[in-house]
Amino acid sequence: MNVAKVLDAKGLSCPMPVVKAKKAMDELTSGQVLEVQTTDKGAKSDLPAWAQASGHKVIDIKEENGILTFWIEKG
């Protein structure tokens, strides 16, 4: 996977992980992948829901040591 940008949103709580993911995504072009790292439990369902509503695609999710990592492809 070719990650174009990594967003470290660890320690931030709702709504900031999604707000920052949106800003980061705005700077990418279609097909590029954004990696988002977060520790906010709410992001687990909200990031995919945001991605779907915005036409992006969640390619993979990993949960390790309390850190959630998402790879989202810009639509």
């Binding site: 709702c14 709504p15 999604v18 707000v19 949106k22 909200d46 829901a49 945001w50 509503a53």
Partner: peptide, 9 residues
């Protein structure tokens, strides 16, 4: 009404 925050960024 349900308006998810991530849809009104």
């Amino acid at each position: 009404v349900n308006i998810p925050y991530f849809e009104i960024l």
